[in-house]
Protein backbone atom coordinates (compact mmCIF):
# COMPACT_ATOMS: atom_id res chain seq x y z
CA UNK A 1 0.00 0.00 0.00
CA UNK A 2 1.39 3.47 -0.88
CA UNK A 3 1.20 5.71 2.21
CA UNK A 4 -0.17 9.26 2.20
CA UNK A 5 3.38 10.64 2.62
CA UNK A 6 4.55 8.57 -0.35
CA UNK A 7 1.69 9.86 -2.51
CA UNK A 8 2.71 13.43 -1.56
CA UNK A 9 6.31 12.61 -2.47
CA UNK A 10 5.28 11.24 -5.89
CA UNK A 11 3.20 14.35 -6.54
CA UNK A 12 6.03 16.73 -5.58
CA UNK A 13 8.52 14.92 -7.83
CA UNK A 14 6.09 14.58 -10.75
CA UNK A 15 5.14 18.29 -10.56
CA UNK A 16 8.82 19.28 -10.58
CA UNK A 17 9.53 16.88 -13.46
CA UNK A 18 6.70 18.29 -15.58
CA UNK A 19 7.41 21.90 -14.64
CA UNK A 20 11.08 21.78 -15.65
CA UNK A 21 11.34 20.85 -19.32
CA UNK A 22 13.59 22.15 -22.11
CA UNK A 23 12.05 25.41 -23.46
CA UNK A 24 9.97 24.89 -26.61
CA UNK A 25 12.02 27.40 -28.64
CA UNK A 26 15.13 25.26 -28.07
CA UNK A 27 13.52 21.96 -29.02
CA UNK A 28 11.74 23.55 -31.99
CA UNK A 29 15.11 24.48 -33.53
CA UNK A 30 15.99 20.78 -33.46
CA UNK A 31 13.15 20.00 -35.84
CA UNK A 32 13.80 22.79 -38.31
CA UNK A 33 15.57 22.49 -41.63
CA UNK A 34 18.87 20.67 -42.04
CA UNK A 35 22.12 22.29 -40.84
CA UNK A 36 25.78 21.54 -41.39
CA UNK A 37 27.62 19.19 -38.98
CA UNK A 38 29.08 22.25 -37.24
CA UNK A 39 25.66 23.89 -36.75
CA UNK A 40 24.23 20.54 -35.60
CA UNK A 41 27.00 20.31 -33.01
CA UNK A 42 26.31 23.85 -31.76
CA UNK A 43 22.59 23.12 -31.58
CA UNK A 44 23.13 19.89 -29.63
CA UNK A 45 25.42 21.68 -27.16
CA UNK A 46 22.74 24.36 -26.73
CA UNK A 47 20.16 21.63 -26.00
CA UNK A 48 22.58 19.85 -23.62
CA UNK A 49 23.24 23.13 -21.77
CA UNK A 50 19.52 23.71 -21.44
CA UNK A 51 19.12 20.11 -20.20
CA UNK A 52 21.67 20.76 -17.44
CA UNK A 53 19.80 23.88 -16.32
CA UNK A 54 16.52 21.94 -16.33
CA UNK A 55 18.20 19.10 -14.41
CA UNK A 56 19.42 21.47 -11.67
CA UNK A 57 16.00 23.09 -11.29
CA UNK A 58 14.31 19.68 -11.15
CA UNK A 59 16.87 18.39 -8.61
CA UNK A 60 16.38 21.39 -6.32
CA UNK A 61 12.72 20.37 -6.04
CA UNK A 62 13.44 16.79 -4.98
CA UNK A 63 12.21 16.70 -1.35
CA UNK A 64 15.26 16.35 0.92
CA UNK A 65 17.89 17.18 -1.72
CA UNK A 66 18.59 20.74 -0.52
CA UNK A 67 19.05 19.50 3.06
CA UNK A 68 22.04 17.41 1.92
CA UNK A 69 25.54 18.85 2.37
CA UNK A 70 26.11 21.58 -0.30
CA UNK A 71 29.30 20.00 -1.62
CA UNK A 72 27.49 16.66 -1.88
CA UNK A 73 24.70 18.33 -3.87
CA UNK A 74 27.33 19.48 -6.39
CA UNK A 75 29.00 16.05 -6.42
CA UNK A 76 25.65 14.31 -7.04
CA UNK A 77 24.74 16.67 -9.89
CA UNK A 78 28.15 16.37 -11.55
CA UNK A 79 28.17 12.59 -11.11
CA UNK A 80 24.66 12.01 -12.42
CA UNK A 81 24.23 14.76 -15.06
CA UNK A 82 25.22 12.61 -18.07
CA UNK A 83 22.99 9.72 -16.98
CA UNK A 84 20.03 11.95 -16.08
CA UNK A 85 20.33 13.70 -19.45
CA UNK A 86 20.43 10.43 -21.40
CA UNK A 87 17.42 9.23 -19.43
CA UNK A 88 15.53 12.45 -20.09
CA UNK A 89 16.41 12.39 -23.81
CA UNK A 90 15.32 8.74 -24.04
CA UNK A 91 12.04 9.62 -22.36
CA UNK A 92 11.46 12.56 -24.71
CA UNK A 93 12.34 10.48 -27.78
CA UNK A 94 10.10 7.61 -26.68
CA UNK A 95 7.09 9.94 -26.51
CA UNK A 96 4.50 9.80 -29.27
CA UNK A 97 5.89 12.24 -31.82
CA UNK A 98 4.38 13.37 -35.13
CA UNK A 99 5.69 11.01 -37.83
CA UNK A 100 9.15 11.88 -39.07
CA UNK A 101 10.24 13.84 -35.97
CA UNK A 102 12.25 10.98 -34.47
CA UNK A 103 14.03 10.42 -37.80
CA UNK A 104 14.91 14.14 -38.05
CA UNK A 105 16.31 14.09 -34.49
CA UNK A 106 18.29 10.90 -35.11
CA UNK A 107 19.63 12.30 -38.38
CA UNK A 108 20.71 15.49 -36.61
CA UNK A 109 22.53 13.55 -33.91
CA UNK A 110 24.18 11.33 -36.52
CA UNK A 111 25.34 14.39 -38.44
CA UNK A 112 26.79 16.21 -35.45
CA UNK A 113 30.24 14.65 -35.57
CA UNK A 114 29.53 12.04 -32.90
CA UNK A 115 31.58 8.86 -33.32
CA UNK A 116 29.63 5.87 -34.72
CA UNK A 117 30.69 3.41 -31.99
CA UNK A 118 28.99 5.71 -29.46
CA UNK A 119 25.84 6.26 -31.49
CA UNK A 120 24.83 2.57 -31.55
CA UNK A 121 24.71 2.02 -27.76
CA UNK A 122 22.99 5.39 -27.32
CA UNK A 123 20.18 4.63 -29.79
CA UNK A 124 19.87 1.10 -28.36
CA UNK A 125 19.37 2.66 -24.95
CA UNK A 126 16.74 5.07 -26.27
CA UNK A 127 14.93 2.09 -27.81
CA UNK A 128 15.14 0.03 -24.59
CA UNK A 129 13.59 2.91 -22.62
CA UNK A 130 10.85 3.35 -25.24
CA UNK A 131 9.92 -0.35 -24.95
CA UNK A 132 9.18 0.06 -21.22
CA UNK A 133 6.32 2.54 -21.84
CA UNK A 134 6.99 4.15 -18.45
CA UNK A 135 4.36 6.46 -16.96
CA UNK A 136 5.44 10.03 -16.18
CA UNK A 137 5.68 9.35 -12.42
CA UNK A 138 7.87 6.27 -13.06
CA UNK A 139 10.13 8.36 -15.32
CA UNK A 140 10.37 11.17 -12.74
CA UNK A 141 11.18 8.70 -9.94
CA UNK A 142 13.75 6.80 -12.03
CA UNK A 143 15.47 10.12 -12.84
CA UNK A 144 15.42 11.01 -9.11
CA UNK A 145 16.95 7.63 -8.19
CA UNK A 146 19.69 8.17 -10.79
CA UNK A 147 20.53 11.56 -9.29
CA UNK A 148 20.55 10.21 -5.72
CA UNK A 149 23.15 7.52 -6.44
CA UNK A 150 25.45 7.58 -3.37
CA UNK A 151 28.59 6.14 -4.97
CA UNK A 152 29.46 9.15 -7.13
CA UNK A 153 32.98 10.64 -6.91
CA UNK A 154 33.56 13.06 -3.96
CA UNK A 155 30.26 12.32 -2.17
CA UNK A 156 31.06 12.59 1.57
CA UNK A 157 27.83 11.74 3.47
CA UNK A 158 27.17 8.45 1.71
CA UNK A 159 24.53 7.32 4.23
CA UNK A 160 22.41 10.50 3.97
CA UNK A 161 22.23 10.11 0.16
CA UNK A 162 21.58 6.37 0.44
CA UNK A 163 18.70 6.95 2.86
CA UNK A 164 17.11 9.43 0.45
CA UNK A 165 17.59 7.07 -2.50
CA UNK A 166 16.12 4.16 -0.53
CA UNK A 167 12.98 6.24 0.11
CA UNK A 168 12.57 6.80 -3.63
CA UNK A 169 13.32 3.16 -4.49
CA UNK A 170 10.65 2.00 -2.05
CA UNK A 171 8.05 4.31 -3.62
CA UNK A 172 8.99 3.27 -7.18
CA UNK A 173 8.83 -0.41 -6.27
CA UNK A 174 5.30 -0.03 -4.88
CA UNK A 175 4.24 2.07 -7.87
CA UNK A 176 5.49 -0.61 -10.31
CA UNK A 177 3.55 -3.33 -8.48
CA UNK A 178 0.39 -1.19 -8.58
CA UNK A 179 0.73 0.02 -12.18
CA UNK A 180 2.11 -3.17 -13.77
CA UNK A 181 0.39 -6.01 -11.85
CA UNK A 182 0.92 -8.37 -14.84
CA UNK A 183 4.68 -7.74 -14.87
CA UNK A 184 6.27 -8.69 -11.53
CA UNK A 185 9.71 -8.10 -13.15
CA UNK A 186 8.90 -4.54 -14.20
CA UNK A 187 10.68 -2.83 -11.28
CA UNK A 188 13.79 -4.98 -11.85
CA UNK A 189 13.71 -4.05 -15.57
CA UNK A 190 13.67 -0.34 -14.64
CA UNK A 191 16.68 -0.79 -12.36
CA UNK A 192 18.41 -2.70 -15.16
CA UNK A 193 18.25 0.50 -17.22
CA UNK A 194 20.32 2.26 -14.55
CA UNK A 195 23.09 -0.26 -15.19
CA UNK A 196 22.87 0.47 -18.93
CA UNK A 197 23.11 4.19 -18.11
CA UNK A 198 26.41 3.62 -16.29
CA UNK A 199 27.84 1.96 -19.39
CA UNK A 200 26.67 4.88 -21.54
CA UNK A 201 28.33 7.22 -19.06
CA UNK A 202 31.70 5.54 -19.72
CA UNK A 203 31.15 5.79 -23.49
CA UNK A 204 30.33 9.46 -23.06
CA UNK A 205 33.75 10.31 -21.63
CA UNK A 206 35.40 8.79 -24.74
CA UNK A 207 32.90 10.55 -27.00
CA UNK A 208 33.82 13.93 -25.52
CA UNK A 209 37.51 13.37 -26.24
CA UNK A 210 36.70 12.40 -29.85
CA UNK A 211 34.72 15.65 -30.19
CA UNK A 212 37.43 17.66 -28.44
CA UNK A 213 40.04 16.42 -30.90
CA UNK A 214 37.92 17.90 -33.72
CA UNK A 215 38.37 21.19 -31.73
CA UNK A 216 34.65 21.45 -30.89
CA UNK A 217 34.03 23.94 -28.07
CA UNK A 218 31.54 23.18 -25.28
CA UNK A 219 29.68 25.86 -23.26
CA UNK A 220 31.18 26.81 -19.82
CA UNK A 221 28.38 24.98 -17.96
CA UNK A 222 28.96 21.78 -19.97
CA UNK A 223 32.74 22.07 -19.42
CA UNK A 224 32.13 22.26 -15.68
CA UNK A 225 29.58 19.48 -15.44
CA UNK A 226 31.52 17.17 -17.79
CA UNK A 227 34.95 18.09 -16.41
CA UNK A 228 36.19 19.18 -19.85
CA UNK A 229 39.03 21.77 -19.83
Amino acid sequence: EITKEQRALIKAILDAYNRHQIPQDVTKKLLQEQYSAEENFLLLTEVATSQVQVLVEFTKNIPGFLSLDREDQIALLKGSAVEAMFLRSAQVLSKKMPSGYTEVLEERIRKSGMSEEFMTPMFNFYKSIGELHMTQDEQALLTTITILTPDRPYVKSHEAVERLQETMLDVLRKLCVLQHPQEPQYFARLLGRLTELRTLHHYHVEMLTSWKTNDHKFTPLLCEIWDVQ
Partner: peptide, 16 residues
Protein backbone atom coordinates in the same frame (compact mmCIF):
# COMPACT_ATOMS: atom_id res chain seq x y z
CA UNK B 1 39.35 29.26 -8.97
CA UNK B 2 36.56 29.86 -11.53
CA UNK B 3 33.22 30.55 -9.70
CA UNK B 4 31.16 27.39 -10.10
CA UNK B 5 28.23 27.91 -12.52
CA UNK B 6 26.64 24.82 -11.01
CA UNK B 7 26.82 26.32 -7.50
CA UNK B 8 25.26 29.54 -8.83
CA UNK B 9 22.37 27.58 -10.37
CA UNK B 10 21.96 25.60 -7.15
CA UNK B 11 21.89 28.73 -4.98
CA UNK B 12 19.39 30.54 -7.23
CA UNK B 13 15.87 30.47 -5.70
CA UNK B 14 14.06 27.23 -6.61
CA UNK B 15 11.39 27.39 -9.36
CA UNK B 16 13.20 30.28 -11.04
Amino acid sequence: EEPSLLKKLLLAPANS
